[in-house]
């Protein structure tokens, strides 16, 4: 079967049936969740401040922090509603651009979505992929705070596609580059576009290293860096609903997903990593 984005427009492909199927597939949900945590890690949010995030092509995700989600598929949003997710949701075609005021968000993530912008649906000039990507990245850039980051996991089908996307993102004002995790594993290989507004926040302006090789024994994805951060507790000792993403939260969530899911993350890669893609 060809890739989903080649079969139908997203709002049709993710109709009622597929939306239910997609969100009930525990294996898939676990993979998506793992990529989400990795993307959040790459966002490199300041550990001591609550962040307000944008989830682009949110699908039906449930998350754990203060966020806003946009998606073009009503059925995906409906499932999200049924799950009583916490963030505000918008029915929106990201290729038409955003209307969010400058500096609205402290960061943005997008999991398995960007490849959908690479197909033209009609012959109208505003539906050409470069036009839509341009509109998307320029309005996203302005909606993000300076400094901050936007991290996209996506499925490019060629290096040309990566090239197209990164060059348009660059024209829109973003710095950053591509991070490839587990580049030598067919199963675990993941491409992340890691875009910076201003310096990208968090000290260095370097593109983070991709993960490679060593997954720890139990199959858990190794984290690039540990976020040292004490959980804030209120007087009763209960964790405040700070909803800041920290490592402990991530690990707890991952546990939960693992319990729901079947197996663990593929543990196949013992290869050493190839150098990551050059930055732009």
């Amino acid at each position: 079967m060809s890739r989903p984005e080649l079969q139908a427009p997203p709002e049709i492909y993710y109709g009622d049936t597929e939306a239910k199927k997609y969100t009930k597939n525990t294996r898939n949900q676990q993979i998506q969740a793992d990529m989400t945590y990795r993307a959040l890690e790459l966002l490199n949010l300041p550990p001591d401040q609550p962040a307000f995030l944008l989830d682009i092509g949110c699908g039906s995700d449930e998350e754990g922090y203060i966020w806003t989600g946009v998606d073009i598929a009503p059925s995906m949003l409906e499932v999200a509603l049924e799950r009583e997710v916490e963030g505000d949701l918008f029915l929106q075609d990201i290729g038409q651009g955003f209307g969010f005021r400058p500096g609205s968000f402290d960061g943005a993530i997008s999991i398995s979505v960007l490849q959908w912008l690479l197909n033209a649906e009609t012959s109208h000039p505003t539906s050409s992929p470069p036009h839509r990507l341009h509109r998307f990245f320029t309005t996203l850039h302005s909606a993000l705070r300076n400094p901050s980051r936007a991290v996209f996991q996506f499925y490019p089908s060629s290096d040309d596609q990566i090239q197209l996307i990164t060059s348009i993102a660059q024209k829109a004002g973003f710095g950053g580059g591509v991070v490839v995790d587990y580049p030598n594993s067919n199963k675990a290989r993941k491409v992340f576009l890691c875009l910076f507004v201003g310096g990208g926040g968090g000290g260095q302006q370097q593109i983070p290293e991709g993960l490679d090789g060593e997954m720890v024994e139990d199959g858990k994805v190794r984290f690039e860096k540990r976020r040292e951060r004490d959980l804030r507790k209120d007087k009763s000792g209960k964790r405040k609903s700070q909803k800041v993403v920290d490592r402990d939260w991530i690990l707890r969530k991952k546990e939960l997903y693992r319990k729901r899911g079947k197996e663990s993350v593929p543990r196949d890669s013992k290869f050493t990593g190839r150098k990551r893609k050059p930055t732009f």
Binding site: P74, L81, F90, Q92, D93, Q96, G97, T122
Partner: peptide, 15 residues
């Protein structure tokens, strides 16, 4: 509707 704003634009409204 249902708490979700529809932000979709018609073709001639797209920037």
């Amino acid at each position: 509707s249902n708490g979700i704003p529809n932000m979709l634009l018609a073709e001639h409204e797209i920037g």
